[in-house]
Simulated scan of single mutants.
Amino acid sequence: MKTKIYHTLTRSYVVVLVMLFAPLLNYFDRNFSFFFGLSIVALILWSSNYNWSLFGFTKKLTKKTIFKSVLLTLVLILFDNCVGIIVQNYFGEPDLSSIDVEGNTLNYIIFLVIIWTIVVFGEEFLFRGYYFKWLAKFLGNTKKAWFFAGIIASIYFGISHYYQGISGMITISIISMLSAFIFYKNRNNLWILILIHGLHDTWGLTFLYLGRSSPIKQLFEQLLLN
């Protein structure tokens, strides 16, 4: 049975079917789409006897990976703030009302735990390790295939954040394209994307908790809007 499940779920076109079906579950709850996709990934992992390399976990977490992730996080934060300000200038602020942490230490800690467990690991595992990587394989596993898969997966990821409004979806789609490029260059080491995602979200969450913009955002606002 396990072998049959594995061969069925690893057929090249299945990732496309999952990506098409999962968003329909948002009709019931916005989290259903995410957990449905994650359950498919879990089934593949289980039926493959926990072959983590299928999703980009080939290398171990090392000091070099951590250092590289920190540097790339700084690049992503700069890119995010630059893109975010330009997008917000045309489409307004993203809707972050679901992240209620300003001045609330308990909520801040709870959100940090959620970010570093369910959000960071789960989203990178699903959207980069499965949707992006397997879509590229479905399209032919060439450079062009990875390019188009990166665009599709990034827009798909942005749309999955529809609760943040049009501004949030556009910004996330664009910065996800940079994350996709990073993963393309490090597609055997998903730990890099997990750390980048976690550090990036921790940075943003911290300034939401403090109730003010980060110095980087303030700098870009002066440079781009004045």
Rank of each mutant, 00 (worst) to 15 (best):
T3Q: 14
H7N: 14
L9E: 11
L9G: 07
S12Y: 10
V14E: 04
L17A: 10
F21L: 14
A22Q: 06
P23A: 12
L25R: 02
N26G: 08
Y27N: 03
F28N: 01
F28P: 01
D29I: 02
S33W: 01
F34S: 06
F36H: 05
I44W: 00
L45C: 10
W46T: 04
N49L: 11
N51D: 15
W52R: 11
S53C: 02
T58R: 13
K59D: 11
K59I: 02
T62S: 15
K64H: 12
T65L: 12
I66S: 11
K68A: 03
V70C: 04
V70W: 00
L71Y: 03
T73G: 12
L74D: 00
L74N: 00
V75P: 01
L76Q: 11
I77K: 00
L78N: 09
F79K: 02
N81G: 04
C82K: 01
C82W: 08
N89V: 01
N89C: 03
F91P: 08
E93M: 13
D95V: 13
D100I: 14
T105C: 04
L106Y: 13
V113G: 01
I115Q: 07
T117W: 00
G122I: 07
E123Y: 00
E123H: 00
E124Q: 04
E124S: 03
G129N: 12
G129K: 13
Y130N: 08
W134K: 15
W134P: 06
L135A: 05
L135M: 13
L135W: 03
L139D: 12
F148R: 09
A149D: 08
I151V: 15
F157S: 05
H161T: 14
I166M: 02
I170C: 10
I170R: 05
I174V: 13
I174Q: 03
M177E: 13
A180M: 14
K185G: 15
N188I: 03
W191A: 15
W191K: 10
I192M: 10
L195R: 10
L195C: 10
L195T: 10
L195M: 14
I196C: 09
I196H: 09
G198V: 10
L199V: 15
T202E: 07
T202L: 14
W203G: 10
G204P: 07
L205N: 13
T206H: 15
T206A: 15
F207Q: 07
F207R: 09
L208H: 04
L210W: 08
G211R: 06
I216L: 07
N226T: 14
